[in-house]
Amino acid sequence: MNPRYVLLEAGRQLRNVRSLVFTFVVPIAMLLIFGTAYGANGAIDHALRLPWVVETTVQMGGYGAMMAGLSQAFAIVNERAIGWNRQLRLTPLTGLVYLASKIVAALLIAAVAITAVVLVSVLALHAHLGAAAWFAAGAGLWIGIVPFALIAILIGQFAPPDFAQPLFMVTFLGLSILGGLWVPLSILPAWMSDVARAMPSYWLNRLGQLGAAGSWDVLAPIAVLAAWTVVLAALITWRYRRDAARA
C-alpha cells in the first residue's frame, strides 16, 4: 500500500470541481425540488415512519454518494485514454494500489457529497432529525458505496473508451431509477419494487433509511451489498490478473 499516493489522488479528484457537478450540484438541486414537493408541511411516510423530507434527503445523499463511486469509471477510462496509466506503470505503484486509490477517492468524495446534502436539507428545508440519526443515515450511505466504486472499476477495466460513456449512462440511470433513488418506490408500479430488490442502489437507500429511523434491522442490506462487493471484487481481480499476464 502507498497511503501518500492514495491520499494525493483523492485530493486531486476533490479539487477537480468541474467533474463533480453531477455528484454535488444535481443531488442538491433535486433535493430542493422533490423535498419541497413531497415533504411540505412535515408530511410523514407512514410505511417507514419517517418524514418525507428525510426520506428524500437520504435518497439524494445516496444518489450523490453513488455518483462519487460510479464516476471513478470516468477517471479510469480517461486516464487510460490519455496515457497517464503508462506514466504510472513506470513507477513502483501496482495496479491494485491504483484501483484502491480510486475506492478511497470515491469514499472521500462521497463523504463530502452526503454531508452537503444533509446540511442543505437541515438548513434550507428544515428537515428534522436527531444528530445521531443523521449520522447513522450518512454512515450507512457512505459505507454502502463500496460496491459502486467496484462497478466503476469494472467499467474502467472492460469498456473501450468510446463505449464507456453510454455504458456509464445506462448503469447510472438503471441504478438510480430502479433502485428508487430519484422517485420513491412506493409511488412507482409494484413490479418495480421487485426489480429494485436486486439493485445495490435500493439497498444503499434502505441502509440510509434504517440509519435515519434508528433501526438495527440492517442484516438484509448489509448482506446484499456485501454479496455485490465480493462478486465484483472477484471479477476485478480475475480481469486484473488476465491483463497483467498479457501486458
Binding site: 499516493y5 477537480n16 513502483p92
Partner: peptide, 26 residues
C-alpha cells in the same frame, strides 16, 4: 525514468501536482 509517446499528464492537474503524484508513487 522515461518520457513516452502517448504517456501524457492529466489536463485538469497542475504541473506540480502531476510531479507530486508520480513522486508519491516512487
Amino acid at each position: 525514468g522515461a518520457m513516452l509517446q502517448g504517456g501524457a499528464l492529466l489536463p485538469t492537474t497542475t504541473v506540480a501536482e502531476s510531479v507530486a503524484l508520480v513522486a508519491a508513487a516512487h
